[in-house]
Design a protein around this nucleic acid. Sequence first.
DNA 1: CGACTGAACGGTTTATAAAGACGTCAACAT
DNA 2: ATGTTGACGTCTTTATAAACCGTTCAGTCG
Lengths: 214, 214
Amino acid sequence: MRPEMPIDNLDDTAKQILDAASRRFLHYGYGKTTMSEIAQDCNMSTGNLYRYFPSKLDIAEMFVRMLRREQVAQLRAVADDPDLSPAEKLRSFFRRKFQLAYERFHDKPKAYELSSELLTSRPKIAIEWENAEGRVLADILIAGDADGSFAVDSPLETAKILQDAGYRFTSPVVFHEGEFDALAAELDGVIELILDGFAWRAAKQSALEKRKHA
Amino acid sequence: MRPEMPIDNLDDTAKQILDAASRRFLHYGYGKTTMSEIAQDCNMSTGNLYRYFPSKLDIAEMFVRMLRREQVAQLRAVADDPDLSPAEKLRSFFRRKFQLAYERFHDKPKAYELSSELLTSRPKIAIEWENAEGRVLADILIAGDADGSFAVDSPLETAKILQDAGYRFTSPVVFHEGEFDALAAELDGVIELILDGFAWRAAKQSALEKRKHA
DNA sequence: CGACTGAACGGTTTATAAAGACGTCAACAT
DNA sequence: ATGTTGACGTCTTTATAAACCGTTCAGTCG
């Protein structure tokens, strides 16, 4: 297996390993599952695991990558939904992202723990994911710019700014109590303010263009 | 000493204890300073410390409260600066807050560690501080509403929303590298967007009032 | 020769015992 | 009566040894 980790050109044996490992990761956590347990589940020796994955952490990375890809796909579905206006897409994007973060933390604590451990060992992956989400967000912004509801100079930079503004609702630090509803309301407040900001910019720009035409 | 912890009606002896403890906390950290060390610094017995503070953690709380009060005072100074427009106050508020968070984390790691330990043991204090900052922020919003540059229905709720939007720049999770400048630029981007949002709301409201007058 | 094994190695976690720290209190001092 | 002490109980932290785990690789099997 090469370090680039192509995500789905997997040997059958590799899939079997990934599957067995995933089950144990989710049930017992990363730290509590051992390579020999994974090997036993697959009826093979520990040494053979290393013919398919360079290390235990790489198995976890592959697994978390799959989870994450599913989440980005959900966000992409929002961005591509033809029934939604750009403003509605922005709202839905962040609500969905918030909900995903909350569920991951609340309903699948082991999956959350797994992500954390992976990201402390391999911080670059977090950036990679942020960028992937940023590209989806940028596409929403581009759509909004095209139909005149937003005015966006640099979609990628603006996307980063929006990600910053929504950071609190994706970071799990806050999920201590049953604060879901209160937080969701605050998230809506942030989004409305941002949408008003875009509205202002769009109005300014259209005024400028009118002047040009005159 | 009563549990309410009045913040500055301190006995001379209590001040001496607080001072000695603070020095050790800052230099060695909370965990590595012992009650008997503090007592020795004050030429007294450990038992006597408990006549002035109910516990070691309460000494730390008092100390961190002082640090924090100083920070809130700095933010209050921004809000009260007569030379700044409301929009400039908002910018300065968040820039100052960001800078304070960064300095605390970067230049005084032990003070940061102390805050963390205190807040995990006494989470309510974090809320108390958020509210204190929120009141300062609300005053800026009220000033902006008064002079027509913002339009703010509920200053305290809106302040909470702004605090959420700025969360990333106050949370120390992000300060890993020399990202200060990049983050500061992103913070400016968030603030500009928010200010545009307020501008839009102010414009809408003033249009509404013109219609009423007509 | 390619697929696989499992014992062996170095580093880390766990289990257990010793040491230490927080907080109390009966006694002392002034 | 007020202010202080310092040894003591209980719980936590540290130190040390044993067990374990991730990883490697010489060697087996087909």
